[in-house]
Nucleic acid binder design. Sequence first.
DNA 1: TATGAATGAGAGTTCATTCAT
DNA 2: AATGAATGAACTCTCATTCAT
Lengths: 199, 199, 199, 199
Amino acid sequence: MPRHKEEEKREIMSETRSLLLQAATEEFAREGYQGANINRISRNAGFAKGTVYNYFDSKRALMLDLIEEIASGHMEFMSQQVLQKDDPARRLEQFFAAGFAWVTDNLSRGLVLFTTLNSHDMEFKTRMYEAYLPMFNLVGQDILAAGIEQGIFRQVEPVSTAALIMNIYLGTGSQVNERGEQWFPAKQVSDFCLQALRA
Amino acid sequence: MPRHKEEEKREIMSETRSLLLQAATEEFAREGYQGANINRISRNAGFAKGTVYNYFDSKRALMLDLIEEIASGHMEFMSQQVLQKDDPARRLEQFFAAGFAWVTDNLSRGLVLFTTLNSHDMEFKTRMYEAYLPMFNLVGQDILAAGIEQGIFRQVEPVSTAALIMNIYLGTGSQVNERGEQWFPAKQVSDFCLQALRA
Amino acid sequence: MPRHKEEEKREIMSETRSLLLQAATEEFAREGYQGANINRISRNAGFAKGTVYNYFDSKRALMLDLIEEIASGHMEFMSQQVLQKDDPARRLEQFFAAGFAWVTDNLSRGLVLFTTLNSHDMEFKTRMYEAYLPMFNLVGQDILAAGIEQGIFRQVEPVSTAALIMNIYLGTGSQVNERGEQWFPAKQVSDFCLQALRA
Amino acid sequence: MPRHKEEEKREIMSETRSLLLQAATEEFAREGYQGANINRISRNAGFAKGTVYNYFDSKRALMLDLIEEIASGHMEFMSQQVLQKDDPARRLEQFFAAGFAWVTDNLSRGLVLFTTLNSHDMEFKTRMYEAYLPMFNLVGQDILAAGIEQGIFRQVEPVSTAALIMNIYLGTGSQVNERGEQWFPAKQVSDFCLQALRA
DNA sequence: TATGAATGAGAGTTCATTCAT
DNA sequence: AATGAATGAACTCTCATTCAT
């Protein structure tokens, strides 16, 4: 039962830890992992230099925890938004709309996500991909397979097509300026995909 | 005749520079810009520590030169491949086929390209985008506009659609393992786009 | 009461800084600014390599702080010594006597002073000259003008003569061996100047 | 007989060597010994990087040769100028007039002289002092002793007073801006000394 | 004699991490 | 739990010097 362990984690998730993760998000987003300065994170969170090390074993451990936190928040939001709709086509539109909105509303988290997926650090990439596995199911099952079954989408291979759509989301959603404005409208991208999938 | 000797020297000069750029490509691909070690580049190219600085003013200048070299080589190859075909649909297929093949054959160059486009360094990003501007024309004019005119593609807006297709190429093409094997078959991606564009 | 603890900390901070400045004085005196080795300063002060950078932004900033520290100490000592006397002639004697004694007692500081005034670094020179401006007033007003008014000295132009006397002090005072022994006796120099000034 | 050796030197003193010394003078004047760049000297002299090493064993040897060249030229000029006059007082005036003029006309040489005398490098200082020994005789014998004997000057100790006057020359003569304009007029300084020496 | 590519020791500086308080 | 002084490995960059041509 992982339940027990998770509760322990929640308890440890003190406000200090939360402030540190917040500051870390902004630092990693602005400077990248290698360029990030641990002492600056601590000070920007309102604490002294050494405080990060009371909560995280190392810079690397802090990054790994941050990856989990970002991915789980993103995942939860996306499932909740997508499953509000019943029609698979609407779900796909909602997938892009919610996905783009999340980036705009979570700009620093988004930057950490996108650059981690393009980083050279296999441990970070792997951790991020693992955390996003449920989203493959969301797209593959709850959108694509459902749409194919209902005859709305043509007979595409759900798994690899889900990967392609995820990839298109991550690629287009990352094109965002420092004020959170997207370069691609969500509608343009979802329409493109809907055209490609229409029966 | 000093002409002979001078040319020989120029060639040796060029060869050293070329070896350094080659080593730099691999280093930047493996470690990223920040993680790259200038002395290691020099040694991996077969020279002593300081030799890079006989050819490049700084780590940053080396990276900027490398960006130009990668982009121009990639651009040239892509134009040449795409324009071999006459039919716009075949050109789009060729665009992805050649693009994916280039990544496989230029693995380190590809990694530098993809991570630069996702980096936090505006100077690098800008330089890379500028170098890739001709590719927007290639996709927008020689593929999309041509296809629309011939009634093969539906009436999409060529500029933003070109950007979207470029984005899809860069997103999918970057999914490649360390042996150069693509996660997405080029055909799957070009078919997806052709479906989305069909009249 | 955190007051107590904070003051202790401040003191420790000050002591480290003071030790670093002390070591820097000796290093700059022995090697000159360019030849000085920042890591050696740190180690000679009893700390590890990087510790200087906890207290000074750069080698240059350290030098600038040192210039201020040396000049202000020297200035304070000279004013206090010279103004102990009332007679302008005695003040001039005291000026050289105290000035030479300060060099002997502050050998490294003196070397930094003299070589900075002869360096090629305009920022250092300017900073040093600015810090020594009050000494021009001391010589020009409290010694020369006072002596002319009292009829002890002939009618020389006080400003340029003050500059000349300052210059003679800096030139002769810098002739000192590594044990602090002056090549010129202070008395010889002050007598020379008194002869030149006598009415 | 050193005559033989000197002739050899003259022969070796090719135009290339002379051009290198000229460029070295300007480089050492502008940057100081430590800041000087050997390759820049070579290029500014119109040669390639390594050429200095065909004429001088090392940077240090180049500096030592330059010291000799500067001092001998300066010495020769000063003797010739001073001994044009017969009256000791006129000789002292001429000493400062010619000395200041030499600095103005040999700005870079002057800067090298002054900074070498204030450097931390005992080998350089010693070499410079040795080269200037004849000037002590010039001042001590041909000016001071002559003047004392003729009753023009009071009975000062010639050796240490010569040192003092030399020191005053070096101190005041070094106060010169980058266009060669002196901060002290030669007449002011020689008048000050003449007042101090008058019987 | 002149060249200039190559060398590699050494310097200033950064910063993740430790630990005594 | 929080602090921040201290550490020292690691990195970029400089440049005196060598040497094959």
